[in-house]
């Protein structure tokens, strides 16, 4: 009799434990599904084409001014070096006591030649500078995918990053700066499509598309 009770108790405990862990795994899986790369159906050609579609956006001054060569930001539609001897610094927020937030607020200031702003205004850190000036489309795509270079992000997290106010600022830069001409919706749809189709990269040998107007500036100032 005692043995039967003991067996029944053990079975009950085992059943409860099983249900508990099953539920836990199910909950974890549900959470993971939200944050993991949402690959709907792998389509390498489609993903590569979607990435190609966003490359012109990435090469606009609104993006390139913080993703170009050198440990300093650039500014303006001509991507000249940021005035005031501004540096990237140890964390991407400036050097010593002169930080990005010394002048930049979390919003654009009104009027021409006033500092633009968005929440978290900064450059990528020197540990992962995310410099894509001079990269081919393929190299740029690989950089986007490489957690060692992209801030430890999965493709799905790259998509999330593209929805942050700092990135979306490119469409409303204020102060007479040229906004990104591609529609924000189209850009976000394409980056989402790239991730959903498996984040494959274009296999190409094309050089980075830098508008001709920028070339003399880089060549003159930083030979």
């Amino acid at each position: 009799m005692r043995n039967r009770r003991l067996i029944a108790s053990c079975l009950t405990v085992a059943a409860v434990t099983y249900v508990f862990f099953s539920l836990r795994i199910a909950v974890q899986a549900a959470g993971h599904a939200k944050s993991a790369p949402d690959v709907m159906s792998r389509d390498d050609a489609g993903a590569a084409a979607a990435f190609e579609a966003i490359v012109p956006v990435l090469h606009r001054p609104r993006c390139m001014n913080c993703h170009s060569n050198g440990d300093f930001p650039r500014q303006g539609d001509d991507s000249h070096r940021h005035t005031m001897q501004v540096h990237r610094g140890r964390d991407g927020h400036g050097l010593n006591a002169v930080r990005c937030s010394t002048c930049h607020q979390d919003h654009n200031l009104v009027g021409p030649r006033t500092p633009p702003g968005a929440p978290g205004w900064h450059l990528p850190s020197p540990a992962m500078p995310m410099i894509w000036e001079g990269l081919t489309d393929h190299q740029l795509c690989e950089l986007f995918k490489d957690p060692q270079q992209n801030g430890h992000r999965t493709p799905a997290q790259i998509v999330e990053h593209m929805h942050t106010p700092l990135v979306l600022w490119g469409w409303s830069p204020g102060g007479g700066r040229t906004p990104i001409p591609t529609s924000q919706q189209e850009f976000l749809e394409k980056i989402q499509e790239w991730a959903e189709k498996g984040a494959a990269c274009p296999v190409d040998a094309s050089a980075t598309i830098i508008p001709d107007a920028w070339v003399p500036i880089y060549a003159d100032q930083f030979p």
């Binding site: 400036g94 006591a97 002169v98 930080r99 002048c103 607020q105």
Partner: peptide
């Protein structure tokens, strides 16, 4: 009046800040 000259500089959080463009609420 637009954070270009530095005459309005103050120190906050150990860094310099241009007080002419910082809203007092910030």
């Amino acid at each position: 009046g637009m954070a270009q000259c530095g005459a309005c500089t103050v120190i906050m959080r150990g860094q310099v800040v241009r007080s002419c463009v910082m809203p007092v609420s910030a």
